[in-house]
């Protein structure tokens, strides 16, 4: 029982990293209808940018901010200069998936060429441990959790209470209607990619901090968990992605205790497939269907 509780702690840490990633992934989908397979590779790239920053003597938290900003700019540029152009040429939904796959290969192996196949570590100081009942967290894990929670709250307030958030939701639910109502759809799409890139970048660095190592396949491996969280929540559903992140994060760590580490991902994905058999469009089904993307 004690080990179950302590792994719940790990699960919450994993969920805090999964949350910004899954929200970013799903936001790109709802704003532009692109399932971005390159999302994991973009995370990895941002994590390495943060690594350069720590090498230059910056603190890890400043590096996290810079990594996230890099992720945001990179993501917006990718959308503007690559994906939007493909969309303009009439590339189909599945065509776009293949485009992002190609992009993922390009980014991942570019990272490998620059930084090599050996993993690198962030230089971190001050790794005190805080005990909360059976759960114990390092200081950096606590900060990671706080950032995850902060991003959840920030996303909620952005989408709910700001004009930009309202515009993003409008574009997500019906792009043509939003455009004819005077919403500058292209700029809003750019902003959505900027925000999702910011979240992806932050998640990449947070993953590096939590694993205490960064490797070129890191984001790619994590992508499956992101997809699981996003699909579980209902693709394109921001709040669903948050719930999905929590569920997948806790499930991964709990099943590692119950079944052993090697079987943890299998059980998490098996749960995903079982849930989808009962609810084929995720636990927060609704708006994505109205959009009629498939």
């Amino acid at each position: 029982m004690n080990s179950m509780l302590s792994s719940l702690g790990f699960g919450i840490v994993t969920a805090s990293i999964l949350l910004p990633a899954a929200v970013g992934f799903t936001l790109q989908f709802s704003a532009t209808g692109v399932l971005n397979i390159a999302f994991g590779a973009q995370m990895t790239f941002a994590a390495y940018i943060a690594f350069i920053c720590t090498q230059a003597g910056m603190s890890i938290w400043l590096a996290l901010v810079l990594g996230a900003v890099f992720g945001a700019v990179f993501s917006a540029l990718l959308n503007r200069f690559l994906l939007a152009r493909f969309a303009k040429r009439g590339t189909t939904f599945f065509g776009m998936v293949v485009v992002t796959i190609a992009l993922a290969l390009l980014i991942e192996y570019l990272v490998e060429i620059i930084w090599g196949t050996m993993s690198v570590n962030y230089q971190m100081t001050g790794t005190g441990v805080v005990h909360l009942g059976a759960m114990s967290f390092t200081h950096s894990q606590l900060v990671v959790m706080a950032i995850g929670l902060g991003i959840a709250v920030a996303t909620h307030s952005l989408l709910k209470y700001t004009r930009i958030g309202k515009a993003i939701r409008a574009v997500a639910s019906n792009t043509d209607l939003a455009r004819s109502s005077g919403v500058p759809a292209q700029r809003i799409t750019d902003i959505a990619w900027l925000i999702s890139g910011l979240m992806g970048g932050a998640a990449g660095v947070m993953l590096g901090i939590s694993l205490s190592s960064v490797s070129y396949t890191m984001g790619d491996t994590f992508l499956i968990e992101i997809i699981a969280a996003a699909v579980l929540g209902g693709v394109g559903q921001v709040y669903g992605a948050m719930l999905g992140a929590l569920a997948i994060g806790v499930l991964l760590e709990e099943s590692a205790i119950v079944l052993g580490g090697a079987y943890a991902p299998i059980s998490a994905f098996a749960v995903l497939i079982l849930v989808l058999l009962v609810r084929p469009t995720g636990i927060m089904a609704g708006a994505a269907e109205a959009k009629g993307i498939a």
Binding site: L35, V231, V235, L276, P280, A294
Partner: peptide, 10 residues
């Protein structure tokens, strides 16, 4: 039962 995009991801 799954929609096209979910099928691909799953």
């Amino acid at each position: 039962r799954l929609r096209g995009d979910y099928q691909a991801m799953v």
